[in-house]
Design a binder for these strands. Sequence first.
RNA 1: GGAGAGAUGGCAGAGCGGUUGAAUGCACCGGUCUUGAAAACCGGCAAGGGUUAGUAGCCCUUCCUGGGUUCGAAUCCCAGUCUCUCCGCCA
Length: 429
Amino acid sequence: MLDARLLRGNLDEMAGKLARRGYQLDTAAFNDLETRRKSLQVRTQELQNRRNTLSRGIGKAKAAGEDIQPLLDEVASLGDELKTAEEQLKSLQAELREFLLSIPNLPDDSVPDGKDEEDNREERAWGEPPSFDFEPKDHVDLGEALGGLDFAAAAKLTGSRFTVMHGAMARLHRALAQFMLDLHTAEHGYDETYVPYMVNQASLYGTGQLPKFAEDLFRLDDERNWHLIPTAEVPLTNLFRDEILDAGDLPVKVLAHTPCFRSEAGAYGKDTRGMIRQHQFDKVELVQAVRPEDSFAALEELTGHAEKVLQKLDLPYRVVTLCTGDLGFSSAKTYDLEVWLPGQGRYREISSCSNFLDFQARRMQARWRNPDTGKPELLHTVNGSGLAVGRTLVAVLENYQQEDGSVLIPQVLRPYMGGMERLQGSGKP
RNA sequence: GGAGAGAUGGCAGAGCGGUUGAAUGCACCGGUCUUGAAAACCGGCAAGGGUUAGUAGCCCUUCCUGGGUUCGAAUCCCAGUCUCUCCGCCA
């Protein structure tokens, strides 16, 4: 959520920045709401002040044994006006809040202008896409031939966009997650965290999934309105909701390995083959809560943490800065890590690392006490995938495939695989 | 699932219709003292919002959440959420 006061004072400038990302701020609607709010709020508070003063007077008069009837008459003369004003103000403020909650974050000045992913800016590339002296297969052909991936079974059990894994393939998937967790906790200083996979609406408002993106979420059929998490970002970041952190505790770095559930309502027809786009996938998520002045450095650092996973796995990738048009709703700046997929002959997103500035923190009142002012101030939040486990499995399969259809296991994963060096044949019992 | 108790400031914990945004302690921030530190003593210290050029003043709101009673609610009533204790059940 943007700062309402900033919006009032710099409406045109803010609208201009939002226009960069293709968002048309309805300045007329805002001005109208704001004008009505101001007069109504001032009027309501005047009336409240009058009532409070009279009531206090009644208390004093009573204690002094004076006649309170004149005061009672006067307070009665306020009539229903106060009640009406309070009700109107409440509903107007709710309307204003909904309006503010639906405005995306301002893109940082360093974010390139653009319409869609075509306009993203490549920052750097790491590793060489492997060359094969045979026609490389994609992960579906490889995984099914190995007996490790079974999309038909998943479709039977549930429907499309799910995966069943067997044997060494399932273990490799687990090994990847374990490897990532160990790397980030041991070498990058994150606190391993276990979180609920269902969250309430307040949490989803906090990180920005609601109110605008309800259709991307799975909602439980329950009057409590719980949702399955679309990413561990939601529970992890909301740990800081309504908290005031000590300056000495910052930065706070947490991580969780969780399944993620996405309805992907708007993605029909895209990536229908294989496990690139699933309703359920595992991800290791990195989240940092930092002092405002540190958030851009934290974004670089966190992106580096995610890159480290790919480097250790020796998977070629590139880093792109998302252009304004491709930027997520809550983000001010995002780096995507794109891994090379031989089966598709192109780079595909495997991690997304973002600086949200105080956008999420304001929604959830996540604060820290600034020792310089002694006052609570909004934190900045930064997060990123480190990495999406399913897509990493895809990348390993496709990049490490051999002509005979077997797949070499990356060195760093072998300790997690009981020393196994190669996936071959059926892992099926 | 059944019975009971509770939810108050960063933390602990009083208050149980009126000048209480809230005693007290801890923590924190200033000061005195000290070569320095500690201790002791003195002072300060909730959050959100409005108005405003203002981090000044004034005002509003907030004692789990949402309703209600009242001139006035942390305090009374109703509903809900969460926590704790005991019983039952269960991985």
